[in-house]
Nucleic acid binder design. Structure first.
Lengths: 208, 208, 208, 208
DNA sequence: AATGAATGAGACTTCATTCAT
DNA sequence: CATGAATGAAGTCTCATTCAT
């Protein structure tokens, strides 16, 4: 079936193209202000073509965000996977997270500018999935945080809180970097993140 | 002029009323899905009246968000103002921040649900102001962080980064709490925030 | 409340105007080919105004047809109401029916051209109501047909069938007249309808 | 050319198949709600193939209706053709008409549901042909009605009116039967139709 | 000054038709 | 010759904004 294979490939190609351009446009204008017509024009196809591939504007948007998020989470997990030491795992996590942010500046803007979850009233499927994914990611982090408890590299606290704080620090760095980018790359801050996460900000020897 | 004073008072009263209801409605449906007609109905006035007081939907929205944010920042600063000790200042900051979140759950949802900055294409005034406010807040925090450097309660690092991390941890707690609220109040977590912020998560005595 | 009365009057006026023009346009082009924009233009108002008064295209259409049909049925019943004699009742019925057809040629075209019930798939409310109205009308006729049985002016048959046949003959005349209108008025055919309805077409004295 | 014959046969076969399925789909959803894609899918061919055989949606629809109507009229005429006696001719006509209705319930629904003539603005060819066919059918009936005048089985009236009334009664029965079908077959009502057509509904011996 | 009916631009979506494969 | 992906015109409906009352 040479022919049908070519067709399938073309379909996938178009789909990818549309998702790529919709990411750019949704990212820069938000869900509501982006128009199908503009996405179609930018993708080099007609409006109807988008409706051949996606059920509607919502479907296009949620598909775009979901696939992107899935890629982010799986990238991060893959890079953590092979590492044994807990501290090294956390370092890998931060690195992978920062790499994603650097490589997907535009998409991350969606978050910083807070447009990811702006959806028509009543449509909560995407939000729910993202919250689920977030909580699942938190749990994934919790797992090796707990390993850290056992090997006594991390002091015993509520694991979920520790995971949330790690993400909070990561996000703070990423946000700060995106807000006021100096020339340095985000990836160079990994050590700094780990330092603060593990040691906190208190001067050694200081007594309150 | 007694009469014009009464008029001015009525005007202010109406303005307040409209802002109050628009906060509720924008918070629950997002900028685009909220309609002027609904806000007018809820505020007990006519559509036209809203246009007497605000230039348009955008103006109403940005005014609402701005005034709210201003109140938040000034609340926080006021509560930090009288305190001398840096550590105490930070504690006051966290407490004030958490108090605001608890008292303005609905509004904060706007952030978590990412609808604060979703605005028609080309309109960046609100975003710019919010970023400015954020950076100014960061600077405000930086100031006493630096005092901490001097009094050696905080180890010398890039002040801005430390400030950002503090906000990151605060947000992580707030977000976590809003996502999966247990029965405890957010305000009870202040000690925990300070603990992590100052000491980090590493087990004392552990050697990497 | 002089003001609100004026407003209500204006509303009713507009509503009537829109219904009048929508009847003309729906009648000439059918449900699907008529457009809201055209109806609005013809009615001298904007598209949005139609949506202030009617929930949508379907609502406008069904309202128009329903109100028209209701008027037809009630006209017919009113003219039959005062009459005592069964034969006279039937004469009044035929006259009233023919008068309606003559006065509402355009609307009746909707029926002859078979566009009354053309509705989006799944929307059967109008059809159901029209069938109900038809059956109710049949029952209304049945009632005095049965009186005819009792006073022996009509031979005993299934009343419903007799009623349906009466309507069938009425429609045959109306259809014929609309199809190929001579100069004579439809109303002049009443005697002829009654003649055929009561006596049939057989030559007196003929034996099959 | 054996090959071209086979080709022609295949073409005719396809054409028949498409007409068959389009009848089903147009009948159940009406002209506008039926889509070419659905008809193609149901007919087991591609959209483009339909456009090889028919000029467009309208052409397909009018062809379908025309061929069906032609078959109806020719069926009816064929069954009347051999009969000599006028009354018997009329009986044959009614029987043939009822048989068609029973065998083509779905198609007749198109009429009852009034979708036969719903066509895009400006397209009147089908309507005109159907009216012509109707008038021709009326004339065909007139012919033997007039024979009835001559042999004194039918009293002298305007022949066209008598023909129209006959069709009116036939339709009344058919409509009634389709509206509220009991278990009896429509064909059993032929006697009843003839009875009313010939004798009318008046009680013998009754004097107005 | 307040009202809210009217406006109409603009968005999403469908589907008849075409044409490259 | 058959296919069905691509096209884009056209229709319905919403809602921010205006303005006569």
């Amino acid at each position: 079936m040479e022919k049908s294979k070519r067709k399938a490939w073309k379909f996938t190609q178009r789909r990818r193209e549309i998702l790529k351009h919709s990411e750019k446009i949704f990212s820069s204008k938000g869900y509501h202000s982006a128009t199908i017509a503009e996405i179609a024009g930018s993708s080099g196809c007609a409006v109807g073509t988008i409706y051949r591939i996606f059920k509607g504007k919502e479907h296009l948007y949620t598909t775009m965000v979901n696939e992107k998020m899935d890629r982010m989470y799986s990238d991060i997990r893959r890079s953590v996977f092979g590492v044994q030491d807990v501290v090294k795992k956390i370092e890998a996590l931060v690195s992978a997270h920062f790499r994603f942010v650097e490589n997907n500046l535009e998409f991350c803007n969606l978050f910083i500018r807070g447009q990811v979850m702006t959806l028509p009233a009543g449509l909560t499927a995407l939000r729910d999935k993202m919250i689920d994914d977030y909580l699942e990611h938190i749990k994934f982090i919790e797992d090796f945080i707990r390993t850290g408890f056992e090997e006594r590299s991390i002091r015993a606290m509520e694991a979920r809180t520790v995971a949330a704080v790690l993400l909070g620090i990561i996000n703070a760095y990423a946000f700060n970097w995106m807000m006021a980018p100096d020339d340095s790359r985000l990836i160079t801050k990994v050590g700094s993140v780990l330092d603060i996460f593990f040691r906190g900000v208190r001067q050694d020897g200081y007594q309150a």
